Amino acid sequence: MATTAEFTYSQVGEHDTKESLWVVIDEKVYDVSKFVDEHPGGEEVMLDVAGQDGTEAFEDVGHSDEAREILAQYIVGNLKRDPSDPKPAVKARTSASSGDEGSSGGIPGIVYAVLVAGLAAGGYYYLQLQQQQASV
């Protein structure tokens, strides 16, 4: 279905309730009001981005091809950005982290945090042993 309707960020922002829930994903505007109750992640995650650019949240979750096909059914138009509109967070993060594909948050971020904490604890323990041996 070809979409020719254009909506401003302000217009999208007027649809921020469960009954009228619009969201922007990759510069496309979707009316997902009828899908809120069916969303596997629950309505709260959708309400968090209601009337806003939800691209970053959508991409961070890693939606399946099937989820993207479902989303396509709800397209109502394209976003017509104004220079005063908030910039999409996913675009800024992508340019700031080019080549840093494995650290987009989620499980890899947790693994790195645990690894750093483990190294810090190991270093502390090693220094404590060295001090005890030096004082004996």
Rank of each mutant, 00 (worst) to 15 (best):
I25E: 02
S64A: 10
W22P: 00
F58M: 03
E59A: 14
Y74A: 11
S33V: 07
D26L: 10
L71F: 03
R68F: 09
Q52L: 12
G54Q: 03
M46V: 08
G42D: 07
G41V: 12
M46T: 02
G42N: 03
E38W: 09
L71Q: 05
V29R: 02
D65Q: 08
K28A: 15
R68C: 13
Q52P: 00
Y30H: 07
V76S: 04
K28S: 15
A57C: 07
E66A: 13
D31P: 04
Y74T: 10
E38Y: 14
G77C: 06
V49L: 08
S20G: 07
Y74E: 06
V45A: 11
A57Y: 03
L47I: 14
E43I: 08
E43K: 11
A72S: 15
D26G: 11
V45Q: 04
V23W: 05
D26F: 02
G41P: 00
L79Q: 08
S33C: 13
K80M: 12
V32M: 14
P40C: 14
Q73C: 12
E27L: 15
L79W: 03
D31I: 05
E56T: 06
D26P: 06
H39E: 12
L79N: 03
E38I: 14
R81W: 05
L21N: 03
K80P: 01
L47Y: 07
W22R: 00
V61Y: 05
